[in-house]
């Protein structure tokens, strides 16, 4: 499973708060970094959680 983040993401950093293993709020670059190109199976459930929890629905399965 791959994830992508749309440009209207508001960089609130909640995905990192809730799912630190998968996301990191890169403040200097002003964007969210996804820690894996391919999401490891044991983190897939968390990735789906992030898609549902995102404040503006900017996280999608690629």
């Amino acid at each position: 499973m791959k994830l992508e983040i749309k440009d209207y993401c508001v960089r609130c950093g909640m995905c990192e708060d809730l799912y630190p293993e998968v996301f990191h709020l890169n403040v200097p670059e002003d964007r969210i970094d996804i820690k894996y190109d391919e999401i490891p199976p044991e983190l897939e459930e968390k990735a789906l959680g992030a898609i549902a929890d995102c404040a503006v629905g900017a996280i999608f399965k690629k």
């Binding site: 209207y8 508001v10 609130c12 909640m14 809730l18 929890d53 995102c54 404040a55 503006v56 629905g57």
Partner: peptide, 12 residues
């Protein structure tokens, strides 16, 4: 939406 805060939706 989700665990977010409403104002983010308003500006979007």
């Amino acid at each position: 939406r989700g665990k977010g805060h409403g104002a983010a939706i308003v500006t979007l």
